[in-house]
């Protein structure tokens, strides 16, 4: 019995490994098969969206709903830009510095914000984005509302120059995969289990000796630092940043990625959601003015009828219960027939 079990497990894990290798191969070969630079641009945006969605999922796994993904995304973008343009550092020196600076900042702000949970936390993070955006616009040193132009691309690494879309895609893919590996490790560690316990019930987790505040703060710091990393890449890929690019509804789109893909899938969910929310509006460009209405309807349909998101629906197909439906229809028919008779 035991033997059989372990063989199934190893077969499963071997299959899983195979699937991962196939997915990786597809992701790596993809830009070579595609001619269009525009599609490559969209793929890069998908990767950035995935990273931001994953930060949202990480906070959600600890029972916090953030609307502030864009805040540290902006902090990362601005920090890295200032380090490169003002201090003349190389991109590769600015990257770790950005991570350290945003980790320190997020620890400071997080210590204040995480004291609140629930609705208050949602709204505070939303306001925090506005504060960051307005502050960046007001400070002349950061380029004001006009932002900063002509940010250099990432410096070349040996023979690889990050000028073409293909090379930029490989860079962001590498960053994404690194984050996936780290996140995966965290989720399967003690920390990940503590987060899930806190999400189910903070009080219960407290009785088990889990300090909800500290663990949530940890989630906030890791999530914010990851968003800053994405922002750092964004600034050097876009080559110009304006405060307006981080304002408003960007953070809400980030949540959509996570919800659409499936909330219980902390890594794959945001990826699927990001692919959909990036490519579907592209298909809908033909309908121009009514595109937001269709996107809104699509969102409502998925939330109302497939609450597990797309991955959740694949994993647990909704039980439409055809027999029940049939019997109900039959009953209706019978009652109608009876009504006709009388």
């Amino acid at each position: 019995m035991k033997l059989l079990n372990s063989s199934t497990v190893s077969r499963n894990s071997r299959l899983k490994l195979g699937a991962i290798i196939v997915a990786l191969a597809v992701l790596i070969i993809l830009p070579l098969c595609i001619e269009s630079d525009y599609i490559k641009h969209l793929l890069i945006m998908v990767c950035i969206g995935t990273i931001l969605g994953m930060t949202f999922s990480m906070l959600y796994s600890a029972g916090l709903i953030t609307l502030g993904a864009a805040a540290f995304y902006a902090v990362g973008a601005y920090t890295s830009t200032m380090l490169v343009t003002s201090l003349g550092l190389s991109f590769w020196a600015a990257l770790p510095l950005t991570i350290i600076i945003s980790a320190v900042l997020s620890l400071g702000f997080g210590a204040i914000f995480v004291r609140n949970a629930g609705v208050a936390f949602v709204i505070i993070t939303l306001i925090f984005v506005q504060v960051i955006v307005i502050a960046a616009g007001q400070i002349e040193f950061l380029g004001g509302w006009g932002g900063i132009m002509n940010i250099p691309r990432p410096d070349s690494l040996g023979p690889v120059e990050f000028v073409s879309k293909r090379d930029c895609y490989y860079l962001i893919l590498a960053i994404l995969l690194l984050i996936v590996v780290i996140y995966n490790a965290i989720y399967s560690s003690r920390i990940g289990r503590a987060w899930r316990a806190i999400k189910l019930s903070p009080n219960l987790a407290g009785t088990l000796g889990i300090n909800a505040y500290r663990y949530r703060l940890l989630a906030f710091v890791i999530g914010s630092t990851t968003a800053a990393l994405a922002g750092c890449f964004y600034a050097h890929y876009f080559q110009n940043i304006t405060p307006g690019a981080f304002a408003g509804w960007l953070s809400i789109y980030v949540q959509l990625y996570a919800v659409l893909g499936g909330l219980e899938f902390y890594i794959l969910g945001p990826a699927i959601g990001s692919v959909i929310m990036t490519f579907v509006p592209e298909y809908l460009r033909v309908v121009k003015e009514i595109e937001p209405i269709i996107t809104g309807l699509l969102l409502l349909i998925i939330i109302l009828f497939f609450p597990g998101g797309i991955l959740g629906t694949i994993k647990n197909p909704p039980d439409f219960n055809l027999t029940q439906l049939k019997s109900r229809l039959n009953r209706m028919r019978i009652s109608k027939a009876q009504g006709d008779k009388s």
Binding site: L15, K16, A23, E35, S36, L268, V275, F279, I314
Partner: peptide, 26 residues
Amino acid sequence: MRRICIFMVLAAVLAATPLLIACNAA
């Protein structure tokens, strides 16, 4: 098994969407 299916779906979606768009646009 389900996990594997999901991985496959991800790979298929990722690969198919841009290619379809490329074909559409061509």
